[in-house]
Design a protein around this nucleic acid. Structure first.
Length: 782
DNA sequence: TAATTCGCTAGACCGA
DNA sequence: TCGGTCTAGCGAA
């Protein structure tokens, strides 16, 4: 199958990958879905390659002739300046890798290019294709792709397995049940029955038959969701299939890669979407906020639904006992259901991203931001047939890491309560600057007539046509278009358009940071520092002009300014006026009008705090920025009180009421009536526990937990409570699960959580901590 | 391994 | 025990 000699194919590209065939040649495989069935097409004409620059034509060709065993063939390219360019083809990727270290020994060798591009990605960018797009594919000598307009809706299901735990190596354990959940199919496969009737259960003869049946079902889908399937479900299925000598089928061939971050389990053809990776990505970029990243927490907080939860330790008992077994199966199916619903909710964002960065979906969900940006640029470089800069390694990265530069401008506010605030900001400021001032490694220090010095005295050539600003312009224009479409679109189309504009926004916002990223292929410190220096100039100019136009500037951060206005029309006039003077893509816009705003003093000095404020608009919506309320390392008891107090201050300005609220919370704490979950502080372990110079509370709690057998590795969120057992706060910190209800240290929560969260707020109404202490009966507590 | 700098705050740590 | 300094984490943009 899949090797049928057919001249034309039509379908949506699901996957592009390569495999070494029986002749040990690396062959590109493309998996398409033609609307009815999936199909794998090979392109044996596309070979791994890289370019070599040689100083002397004759000498180099002789050297190639003498080393014929090191490569397959070569093509001479157009001469560049004084050097000769050769394109060397290889039988497989291993041979390419050997040659790229050997090549420097060949006579007359000068340089090598494009030798560190993954083969499958090389194919995508050379053929200029987009995964998840529909193509008419013609097979001549190699494949040719012609894009067609078709809406593709992938068929998705979620799979979840349960295993025994007899084996030390979790991945070698027997599978006891497999649940598959999709829009149409809900099924639990096992080889033991239950006492009560379960319509979703299909009892197989044995484990082997169960796995075969599962694979048969899974093979019908385009995308398979798992939750942590990279590290667990896929490797386990794979191990067991091997054990029973089961063929996984051509669309579900796992390729498991080990990395320092754990395993990555790709499946050829069918896209394995590890939903955990999606959740982790969204948490990392700050678009969702979770205390834990496990399935139960994600499902319950993001979808606000309940899920069956059982402890792993219960599984053997449930499995052995026919009376209880059904519970295990229901749990299994519920996990796959939760995985499915989470996958469905967030998939669109990643299919949209996938198309923009020209990577398969299973790549996209596992890619760091820098690689997404790099993928886009590589695609456009390949289009222009330009060499792709090599990945920096070793000292180059180290040296780059040493260098710092000045960032955005932040104006210090006067602590106060303000009325009638207009917030204005630049639309996509950094991208706009890069476009307008043609900032790019491609234009830096290129001699010419129209060279301009940036505020950091770096020289950019305005005449040179540069790819990177060009890409950013395309994305910016596209986003503006998608956003207008979105506002006009009917409901069912709106989700797609929202996901599209969200993805475009994320990409846009990442280009500037990418340029200063030490491991970037297109690293350009001069570009990054110039971009941000321009941003300082622009926002300072706006602040200055606002003051001249009788709009008092109370605060400003990077690309925004907060103005006190009398009439909204003044603000609109001001915007028009400024916009008429701004060059290129730079555009100042209105973010919104706010009825009232609170800026507080810093705790250490008596000046206004930057990056912390609260606003209320004319509809009564609160916007809280930077305060403890938005931080996960503060307790709910302090955070929710802070929000209430902010609301009272901004809505009513009622000091008495605010003080009353504070006293009520303190009383609850004293009476030990606050629920455990509202006392939890949450901080992340960022390095191995023995590498800390300072043992802060969360590290201390983690160390103690580790001694009790809880795994605490970098990346773990430590949820802890401050108890009364010990002297220092660190000593008193214990993991939430080890703290009995009501055995918390109320003094800590009053003095170190509640009061610090609200005192700076009421101080703006003329109240002081001393007054609060004086007038409170619980004096001994302070 | 995972785009950048700016900024706030807590709590440990350390020496007087 | 105090106050200054440093480490660490998280958020804003």
């Amino acid at each position: 199958m899949g090797k049928k000699l057919k001249k034309q194919y039509s379908g949506t590209i699901l996957d592009v990958f390569y495999e070494n065939n029986e002749k040990n040649e690396s062959i590109i495989n493309i998996c398409i879905n033609n609307g009815k069935v999936k199909q794998i097409i090979e392109d044996p004409y596309f070979k791994p390659y890289f370019y070599v620059e040689a100083g002397n034509e004759k000498k180099f060709e002789k050297a190639l002739e003498d080393n014929k065993n090191l490569f397959l063939s070569y093509e001479k390219q157009k001469k560049q300046e004084k050097n000769f360019i050769y394109k060397l083809y290889f039988k497989n990727t291993t041979q390419l890798m050997e040659m790229r270290s050997e090549i420097k020994n060949l006579d007359s060798f000068v340089a090598k290019h494009d030798y560190d591009i993954p083969f499958d990605q090389r194919y995508i960018i050379d053929k200029q294709i987009t995964p998840l797009s529909h193509y008419l594919i013609t097979s001549k000598e190699g494949l040719e792709f012609e894009e067609k307009e078709t809406d593709f809706v992938p068929l998705c299901c979620a799979v979840d397995i349960e295993t025994t735990s007899d084996n030390k190596d979790m991945l070698k354990n027997e599978i006891i049940s497999i649940a598959i959940y999709s829009e149409k199919i809900k099924i639990i496969l096992s080889y033991r029955d239950t006492k009560e009737n379960n319509n979703d259960l299909e009892v197989c003869k044995d484990e082997k038959e169960m796995i075969e049946r599962a694979l048969e079902i899974l093979n019908n889908f385009d995308f398979i969701f798992t939750y942590n399937g990279d590290n667990f479900d896929i490797p386990v299925i794979c191990n067991r299939a091997k054990e029973f000598d089961i063929d996984m089928g051509i669309y579900l061939k796992p390729k498991i890669r080990k990395s320092s971050m754990g395993k990555i389990s790709y499946t050829a053809g069918i896209q394995h979407i590890d939903v955990y990776k999606i959740i982790a990505y969204l948490a990392r970029v700050g678009s969702i906020s979770l205390n834990k990243l496990d399935l139960t927490t994600a499902y319950e907080t993001l979808l606000e639904k309940d899920k069956i939860d059982i402890e792993y330790t219960e599984i053997p008992e449930l499995w052995e006992n026919i009376e209880k077994r059904n519970r295990l199966f229901e749990y299994n199916l519920d996990d796959s259901k939760a995985t499915y619903e989470l996958g469905e909710k967030y998939l669109l964002t990643f299919t949209e991203l996938s198309k923009m960065i020209h990577r398969t979906v299973q790549d996209t969900i596992r890619l760091p931001t820098s690689n997404m940006i790099e993928s886009i640029i590589m695609y456009y470089y390949a289009k222009e047939k330009k060499f792709i800069p090599k990945k920096p390694i070793g000292d180059i990265v180290g040296d780059r890491e040493e260098i710092t530069y000045v960032g955005g401008y932040v104006k210090q506010p006067e602590p106060n309560i303000y009325e009638n605030i207009a917030v204005i900001d630049f639309r996509s400021l950094h991208p706009s600057i890069i476009i307008t001032h043609n900032i790019s490694p491609e234009t830096l220090n290129v001699p010419g007539k129209k060279c301009v010095l940036s505020p950091t005295k770096d020289k950019f050539n305005l005449e040179v046509k540069a790819i990177i600003p060009g890409i950013i312009k395309e994305i910016l224009d596209k986003r503006i278009k998608v956003k207008t479409e979105m506002h006009k679109a009917d409901k069912n189309k709106q989700d797609v358009l929202f996901a599209r504009q969200w993805s475009l926004k994320r990409l846009l916002a990442s280009f500037y940071g990418y340029l200063a990223y030490p491991r970037a292929r297109w690293y350009c410190l001069e570009c990054a520092r110039s971009t941000v220096a321009y941003s300082q100039e622009y926002i300072k100019m706006v602040c200055e002009q606002a003051e001249k136009n009788a709009l008092k500037v109370i605060y400003s951060d990077t690309d925004s300014a907060f103005l006190i206005y009398r009439k909204q029309s003044e603000v609109e006039t001001f915007l028009k006026k400024i916009n008429s003077t701004l060059p290129g893509e730079i555009k100042l816009t209105l973010d919104g009008y706010y009825k009232r705003g609170l800026f507080v003093a810093k705790k250490s000095e008596n000046v206004g705090a930057k990056k912390r404020y609260a606003l209320i608009d004319f509809e009564g919506n609160l916007k809280i920025v930077g305060f403890e309320f938005v931080r996960r390392d503060w307790s709910n008891v302090a955070k929710s009180l802070q929000k209430e107090v902010l609301e009272i201050i901004l809505k009513e300005g009622n000091l008495e009421k605010a003080i009353k609220k504070i006293r009520e919370t303190i009383a609850l704490l004293v009476a030990h009536k606050v629920k455990k979950e509202d006392l939890v502080l949450s901080s992340k372990i960022t390095k191995p526990l023995n590498k800390y110079n300072n043992i802060s509370p969360h590290v201390s709690a983690a160390r103690k937990a580790e001694r009790r057998g809880v795994l605490m590795k970098p990346g773990t969120l430590v949820n802890y409570i401050i108890t009364k057992n010990g002297i220092s706060i660190s000593e008193r910190a214990e993991l939430e699960q080890f703290v009995k209800d009501n055995s918390y240290d109320e003094e800590y929560y009053i003095n170190n959580q509640v009061l610090p969260a609200v005192i700076p707020l009421v101080e703006q109404l003329g109240f002081t901590k001393e007054k609060l202490i004086e007038s409170t009966k619980q004096q001994r507590l302070f």
